[in-house]
Amino acid sequence: MDQPRPRHKARKPLIIERPDLQTPPQRVMSGMLTAAFWVVWIYLWLPLIAVLGWAFGVSRFYEEMIAFDGYEALLELLDVYLKVVALLAGSLIAWAIYNWVRFRGEDRRKGRTPVTTAEIAEYAGLDAAQLEQWQSAQVLRVEHHDDGRIAGVSVLSPQPRRSSGRPTEPALQH
């Protein structure tokens, strides 16, 4: 590359994993909340635990089984769920394959020729020659009208220096 190497590395690591920067109550709170959620999760799994318990002859789970209609209810539910899931997923994938086969190698709609600076200038109510100059300037200041149109542009620094000289103080400052 034709540019100077930056003189600094990223000052912070890519992944910032610093739980120690939290206050102790915050850390305790996260731990407690996560523990609470594991309990909720286990509660969701109670019927399954009940089936396992029953299967392995732990008799006190029997009442749980009655309450939940036993594993037959699960099998019935699974049967219905599997059909619905197969229908939904099958439709999506069939649709994707249909489109893939139908539009393979052809674009129904044609591309456009790239928009030109003149067209952009016309759209934005700017002078095309001026816009072209601004497009290569390095530092610019832009004023806008209240409705969002560009009201004026001033060039603060015209061309990027391509030499790899030492960093210098900027010529213009705000």
Partner: peptide, 24 residues
């Protein structure tokens, strides 16, 4: 931010800076 970007512009030739006069 403004001053920092201006300084960076002299360091990185690929960098171009556009200052908006007001927050838009």
């Amino acid at each position: 931010t403004a001053a920092l970007l201006d300084r960076m512009a002299s360091r990185y030739p690929r960098l171009r800076v556009v200052h908006l006069a007001r927050n838009q």
